[in-house]
Structure formats: C-alpha cells, structure tokens
C-alpha cells in the first residue's frame, strides 16, 4: 500500500514518463553516435590533416552496447538516478510526513521497503528499456549481440542499480539538505565505479564491479567464476545500507527538534 502510494505520487510527478524517456535517449545515443562518427568526422574535418584510417576495425556490436552501459548509464545515468531519488526520504522528513506516518501502526521496514521497491521498479524498468533500445539499434547498425549475453549483462547491471537505489535512500535518510545528498551520493557512486579494477580485494566488496562484470559479459561472453561471491557481497552491501536506514529511522535520529 505504501508502494501503491509511491506509484501514484510518481505518476503525478510525471516521473514514470520522463525517467524511461531519458534512459531510452541515453541508450540510443551511443550506437548512433558511434555509427555516424566516422561520417561526421569526414564532413567536418574535410580532409585537412585528419585521415580516416580505412583499415580501422569496424566496431563490434558488443563493444558499442558495452559502452552504452559504461559511458552513458554509468555517467549521466548515475546522476539521473541520484537526482530522481535524492528527495526520497528527505522530503518526508522535512515536512513531517515521516513522523506522521510512523504514528500509525506501520513498521519502519515496510516504509523503507515501500520506498526502495517502488523506486527500484521504476528505475530498473527505465534502465532496461534504455538498454533494450540500445540493443536494437546496435543489432541494426552493427553486428548482432548474443541474446543470452545481453540478458546476463543486464542482470548484473540491474544489481548495481539496486545498490545505487538503496545507497541513495540511506544518504537521503541521514542527511537533510538535498544538495548534500546529491553531491555525496554522486561522488561516492562515481568513485566506486572509477576504482573498479584497481585492486582485486576492493572489487570484491565494491558493488560497482557489477557494472564491470556486465561489460565483460558483453565483450568476452564469460565472467570469472568468483563472480558468485562478488554478487553475494553486493547483496550484503545492499542489505547493509538498508539496515543503516532502518536503524536511523527506528531510533528517531531524523527528528531535528
């Protein structure tokens, strides 16, 4: 019922329309730009010093799809996810609705899960839609990508999205200023994504490595068997953020009086 309320609110905010649209747009950008880049360069460059190497290998479909994830979703995408979610708990705190809701026999857990489930459904749907659009364009403009690889990669990626959602919810619960929430979440998520690959130990606990697994899945078609542990670890991290959120609200640390 809290989930239902969130969806009605998202519909009234028109969030259910613009979020998928933005991700579809992001999904289309990469294949189209990659496809037309040589042509654009040729036209703009006009042969003055820039030579287009005719032997340059044509980009593979999988590469383009992977770069949709890495250079579109992991950059602009993170910002959009955080911005669309930064107020998730913060507004309820600011206008007293959270305290009000909790005067009713509602558990903190159902409040938080209502927020996370509803936002995750919307974001996962938007990301998947954008990704699938990208996939269609890639298949049309470049070489085909195996369906299985495409789906497994998406699942890895969606796990990373779930972490983004639960992490932003946690930050939104702890901090009161929307700017601080956005800045902190974006900085942390970017940082996590950047340090992927630096150290095996960090990758193991870093949920952003899910994005890298998605990349490998598309490029190579297989991933390291250790991935199971890393996936489990990501779930642990997600659970951890939820526990902190729960603790914070249950112990009434949000009360600012």
């Amino acid at each position: 019922m809290l989930v239902k309320k969130e969806f009605i609110q998202m519909a009234r905010d028109l969030k259910v329309f613009w979020l998928p649209l933005v991700f579809v747009f992001l999904g289309i950008t990469q294949p189209i730009v990659s496809y037309y880049l040589p042509t654009i360069l040729k036209m703009v460059g006009g042969g003055q010093g820039i030579t287009i190497d005719p032997t340059m290998p044509v980009q593979q479909g999988a590469e383009v799809l992977a770069s949709t994830l890495v250079s579109q979703f992991d950059q602009l995408g993170i910002m959009i996810i955080v911005i669309s979610m930064m107020a998730v708990v913060q507004t309820d705190k600011a206008n007293g609705m959270l305290a009000f809701i909790l005067t009713r026999p509602v558990t903190v857990r159902s409040y938080i899960s209502g927020k996370i489930v509803s936002n995750y459904i919307l974001l996962a749907g938007s990301v998947s839609l954008g990704y699938l659009t990208s996939y269609l364009y890639v298949n049309y403009l470049f070489s085909n990508v195996a369906v299985i690889n495409m789906i497994v990669a998406l699942l890895f990626y969606l796990l990373w999205v779930l972490f983004m959602v639960s992490f932003t919810t946690m930050i939104s619960t702890i901090f009161n200023s929307p700017a601080v929430i956005a800045l902190l979440s974006i900085a942390f998520l970017f940082f996590s994504r950047i340090i992927v690959g630096l150290s095996v130990a960090i990758d193991f606990i870093n949920p952003a490595s899910m994005s890298n697994y998605a990349l490998e899945m598309l490029m190579i078609g297989t991933v390291n068997t250790d991935v199971i542990w890393s996936v489990l670890m990501t779930f642990v991290m997600i659970g951890f953020t939820m526990i902190i959120t729960n603790f914070w609200i249950a112990h009434k640390k949000y009360v600012t009086d």
């Binding site: 609110q9 206008n95 007293g96 609705m97 009000f100 005067t103």
Partner: peptide
Amino acid sequence: IGYLPQYPNFYQW
C-alpha cells in the same frame, strides 16, 4: 492513538 500534529502536513498532491 490518534494524533494531530501542530502543523498537519499532508501530501499536497
């Protein structure tokens, strides 16, 4: 318990 806050704030929408 029924509680009425000092400034009841509902969802505006």
